[in-house]
Amino acid sequence: MAIHFRTRIRFPDRSNQKPSGYFFFISRFISKSLSESTYDPPFSPVSKLQKAKKKKKAHGGNSNSNENPTLPLKSYLPFDFFYSYSETNPLVNPIGYRESPKFSPFGPGRLDRKWTGTSAPSAVEVNINEVLEERKRILGDPLSDEEVAELVEQYRHSDCSRQINLGKGGVTHNMLDDIHNHWKRAEAVRIKCLGVPTLDMENICFHLEDKSGGKIIYRYINILLLYRGRNYDPKNRPAIPLMLWKPYAPIYPKLVKNVADGLSFDETKEMRSRGLNSPPLMKLTRNGVYVNVVDRVREAFKFEEVVRLDCTHVGSSDCKQIGVKLRDLVPCVPILFKDEQIILWRGKKDHEEDMNS
């Protein structure tokens, strides 16, 4: 008996597969041949000629419309321009520069004053009497106690929108423009001072009044209110050219000498070791309020010869600025900056006077 087997051959179903490259090429060729034009892209390119014509019409056909004809700017402010007025001592001459003085932070050809590396001195002689008379005219009659109390109540709170933060840069040049911008819509400006400049608040108040022409009507610790004056006219505000960048700080003489004046090498070394091993007088924080530091150091020098200030997390640059200010305000002699610690010595003369008394 013969057994027959039937085999069924199944061919793969190609109905759902995409056409091969050959059929795709043929179909695309036929569709192109049936089109009316030989070039029919999916999106027609937009010509740039129309945009160029619109720009020319907007500018009136002048190619020099972007140029400012008022350059260089002329400012008749009666003082020399510094980056920081409160933190720069014009009596101390730098020994070098980190950038060439020919690069003015006001921009090339934008100011009629020449940049010397630290300042832009005024080329016009200033008549001090005329300046003082003009400021008195703008300030007008003194404010009464009721008017001062009303302004203080309006601007002294922390949620005041007319506030300027004064940091370690102190009273900077561009801050003057910010003050006048606030004075357009407000009679006074709230200034919150933080950092190194708070060591000498008198210096801050002096430069704010001297450079802006206003008057401090309220002062509480590190909060100031600067009044613009009764006859202040925002339309006749002074022209203040802005600094486009912060200039590099020049190089000044070394702050700490290897051997302090009045001491030998061994005595200086002993003073430094005593200061590092002594307990800190105060611990300063970064961008803190240092209003009472000078008085605390003066009182400590009545009983101690060396004082240490703990400036952890303050920063090395701020530590040196604090040491410079304390040297002039206390006065004292900084003998060491190490690991964000400031060691201050009260000086030889004070020590001898205490011993004789």
Rank of each mutant, 00 (worst) to 15 (best):
G195Q: 01
K184Y: 05
V314A: 03
V293D: 06
A120V: 01
G109Q: 00
R296P: 04
L199W: 02
T268M: 00
L263Q: 05
N356I: 13
V126K: 09
K302I: 10
Y76W: 04
D354T: 04
G140R: 09
P12H: 02
G61A: 03
E133G: 13
N231M: 09
K192M: 14
D266W: 11
M201I: 09
K57S: 14
K48A: 15
Q321S: 15
N165E: 11
S158E: 03
N231V: 12
K246V: 12
I30E: 10
T88M: 08
D318F: 03
G96M: 05
F29K: 15
N93I: 13
D295I: 05
D177R: 13
L34H: 09
E202H: 02
L242N: 09
D339L: 10
I95Q: 03
P19Q: 11
W345S: 02
G169L: 06
I30P: 02
P280N: 09
Y83Q: 03
R237V: 13
C205G: 09
W345G: 05
G214R: 03
M282F: 07
G96I: 01
P42R: 10
S47E: 03
I217R: 01
R286M: 13
Y155D: 00
L225Q: 05
E67V: 15
Q17A: 15
S158Q: 02
R346Y: 06
R185Q: 13
R327A: 14
K269M: 14
E99N: 09
K211P: 08
V293K: 03
S122T: 06
P19Y: 06
P247K: 11
P247V: 12
N89H: 02
F79A: 08
R296N: 11
D350P: 01
F206N: 14
M355A: 12
D40G: 11
E146D: 04
T198Y: 05
A123D: 00
G347Y: 00
D350W: 09
E202D: 11
I251M: 01
S317M: 13
V297A: 06
S31K: 11
N66L: 14
L344T: 06
G213P: 03
L139S: 05
F29L: 15
H180V: 11
F106G: 12
L73N: 08
R6I: 12
N181Y: 03
L166N: 01
D261I: 08
S144D: 04
E99S: 11
W115H: 07
S122P: 00
G347F: 01
V196I: 08
F24G: 15
S35R: 04
I3G: 08
P19A: 13
S27G: 15
V92M: 10
C319M: 00
G117D: 06
